[in-house]
Computed example of a mutant assay.
Amino acid sequence: MNFLAHAWLSRHGSDDFLYGNLIADGVKGSRLESWPTAIASGIRHHRQVDAAIDRHAEVLRLLQMAPSAQRRFTGIALDLVWDHFLASRSPDVALVERCYQVLGERQAPERLAGMVPAMIDGDWLQRYADFDFTCRAIAGIGQRLRGPNQLAALTPWLRDEYDNLEAAFFSLWPDMQHRFSE
């Protein structure tokens, strides 16, 4: 759900490519033939970025540090934490507005249909600059998962490890930019 990071890494592409990057988490399966070419390319790009970040040494290190009970949910939280650092350290109002415009002009996939309008109306992409808001968003995602809210349970660890998370971001983000920016 790290819309801002994916937007940043795809911002030089067409609006369709950007749209594909933004909605990829709402698209199931690998068969993308029904999507226009540029949107399908954006979806694939998003998935390549996700795979690379999931294997990044900093993410693997943080996963080992995370509380064992929430470890399997840590990657979800880290995605939003990366958006927090982008929003707070490198705000890009023009990119955020472009994302909202691109998302607002098109129908989101069913899995994102309720969330996208709320994200636009609530200006989430800029509000991620506030770490408290980011933690509430992480806990909100946890409410949509089955069982106890492990993401909410993870937020104290995120707060305690904030400096470590920031250092990890400044290590991994240049790698992602170099590898995936067009």
Rank of each mutant, 00 (worst) to 15 (best):
V59E: 00
A24P: 07
S41P: 00
D25A: 11
A52V: 05
G29P: 12
G29V: 09
A57S: 14
W35P: 09
A38G: 08
A40L: 02
G29I: 12
P36A: 09
L60S: 09
S34H: 15
R44N: 13
A52H: 14
K28D: 13
R44F: 07
A51K: 09
T37M: 11
H46M: 02
G42V: 10
R47S: 03
R47I: 02
D54A: 11
A40R: 05
G26Q: 06
I39Q: 08
R31T: 04
A40I: 05
A52S: 14
H45R: 06
G29Q: 08
W35K: 14
D50N: 00
L60F: 07
G42Y: 09
L60V: 14
K28R: 15
A52G: 09
H45D: 03
A38I: 06
L60M: 06
R47L: 02
R44S: 08
E58P: 10
L60T: 12
I53P: 00
E58G: 00
A38E: 15
S41F: 01
D25R: 07
I39S: 07
A24H: 03
V59C: 04
G42N: 11
Q48K: 03
Q48A: 06
A57T: 11
V49A: 01
P36G: 00
G42Q: 13
A52L: 08
L32M: 10
H45S: 08
A38F: 05
S34P: 13
Q48I: 00
G42E: 14
A57L: 07
A38L: 10
R55N: 13
I43V: 12
